Amino acid sequence: MEKIVILTGAGISAESGLGTFRDEGGLWAQHRIEDVATPEGFARNPQLVHDFYNARRLQATRSLPNSAHTALALLEAEHPAQVIIITQNVDGLHEAAGSRTVLHMHGRLAGALCAKCGHRWAAPDAMRPDDPCPACSTPATRPDIVWFGEIPYHMGEIWDHLRDADLFAAIGTSGEVYPAAAFVQDADRHGAHTVELNLEPSSVVSDFSETHFGKATETVPLWVKNLLNG
């Protein structure tokens, strides 16, 4: 087995205490997506959006990587060929576990972005709509998060990795959000063996050649162990 490309979604961080869109009683359940995860919502009420992401950032800083994150870091460290992690998650748990090659296609909670000039910098614990950009001084600070209706980051690089992959795995993702939901089809067309590891079947489960269902902290370490043992 040579190059491995792995897509991770909210399911891999759920056992670290970070909620998903579908969790009842979590941060997402308290807000409409249109209000806190779209450019239009930010334009209507930037304070609400900042409050929401400030709360998510605080939650993420209090969370620790789980055994699924550490297993993927071990895979990268010990696999003789390239291992690429593409994540839909905006937390930093992959990096905290030791993974070095992580592409955050939806941005990061730890980042701030100027909506006027595009400058990026490390986000403080709490962000406000009137925070000035360090580069242009405009009070146009927003979270460096890809919202619905925006183009995910690193897409050219991601497509190249998918087309070079010998093995593609999707972990903890619903298969309902594009373009990530199409990654398995693209990797398969270019000859990769495809694997889904999920709590339950995703919307695109039929596109995978191999599946493993259960908690990420159980399925991922076992899958990694089997890969490394040949």
Rank of each mutant, 00 (worst) to 15 (best):
Ala71Trp: 03
His104Asn: 12
Arg163Asn: 02
Ile86Glu: 11
Arg128Gly: 09
Thr141Arg: 06
Tyr153Trp: 13
Ala122Tyr: 00
Thr101Pro: 00
Trp121Ala: 01
His104Pro: 10
Gln88Arg: 04
Gly118Asp: 12
Ala81Gln: 15
Ala68Phe: 07
Ala140Phe: 06
Thr141Val: 14
Glu78Gln: 15
Asp144Arg: 01
Ala71Val: 03
Ile84Val: 15
Asp160Gln: 15
Pro139Val: 01
Phe168Lys: 01
Ser67Val: 01
Thr141Gln: 08
Gln82Ala: 12
Arg128Asp: 13
Ala135Met: 10
Ala81Cys: 14
Pro134Asp: 07
Asp130Leu: 13
Ala97Trp: 05
Ala81Leu: 13
Ala60Thr: 09
Pro80Tyr: 04
Ala123Ser: 05
Ala73Leu: 06
Ala122Gln: 13
Gln88Cys: 03
Gly149Lys: 06
Leu74Arg: 14
Gln59Tyr: 06
Ala96Gln: 14
Trp121Pro: 01
Pro129Cys: 11
Pro129Gly: 05
Ser67Asp: 12
Asp131His: 04
Ala81Ile: 06
Ala96Cys: 10
Asp144Ser: 06
Pro132Trp: 10
Arg163Gln: 15
Ser63Arg: 00
Ile86Ala: 09
His106Gly: 00
Phe168Asn: 01
Glu76Tyr: 05
Leu64Cys: 07
Ala81Ser: 15
Met105Trp: 08
His79Gly: 06
Ser67Thr: 15
Met127Ile: 06
Asp166Met: 11
Thr70Gln: 09
Gln88Leu: 02
Trp159Ala: 13
Leu167Asn: 07
His79Phe: 13
Val83His: 04
Ala115Ile: 11
Leu162Val: 00
Pro143Gln: 05
Val83Asp: 11
Ala169Thr: 10
Ser63Asn: 03
Asp160Ile: 08
Ile84His: 04
Pro129Thr: 05
Val146Cys: 05
His94Pro: 01
Ala73Trp: 09
Leu74Tyr: 11
Pro124His: 08
Pro80Val: 06
His79Tyr: 13
Leu167His: 14
Ala97Gly: 11
Pro139Gly: 04
Asp166Cys: 08
Pro129Ser: 05
His106Arg: 03
Arg120Asp: 04
Thr87Asn: 02
His79Leu: 10
Trp147Ala: 08
Pro134Ile: 03
Gly111Val: 01
Ile85Gln: 08
Asn66Ser: 02
Cys133Glu: 03
Gln88Gly: 02
His104Phe: 08
Gly111Pro: 08
Ile145Gln: 04
Arg128Ile: 10
Asp144Asn: 10
Ile86Lys: 08
Val83Pro: 09
Met127Gly: 11
Val102Gln: 07
Tyr153Leu: 15
Pro134Met: 03
Arg142Ser: 08
Arg163Trp: 05
Val90Trp: 00
Lys116Thr: 12
Trp147Met: 15
Pro124Glu: 06
Ala140Gly: 12
Asp125Ala: 12
Ala123Trp: 00
Leu167Glu: 09
Asp131Arg: 05
Ala169Val: 11
Gly92Pro: 03
Asp164His: 15
Thr138Ala: 14
Lys116Phe: 10
Asn66Lys: 02
Asn66Ile: 01
Arg163His: 09
Leu93Thr: 00
Met127Arg: 02
Ala81Phe: 14
Glu78Trp: 10
Ala123His: 02
Pro143Phe: 02
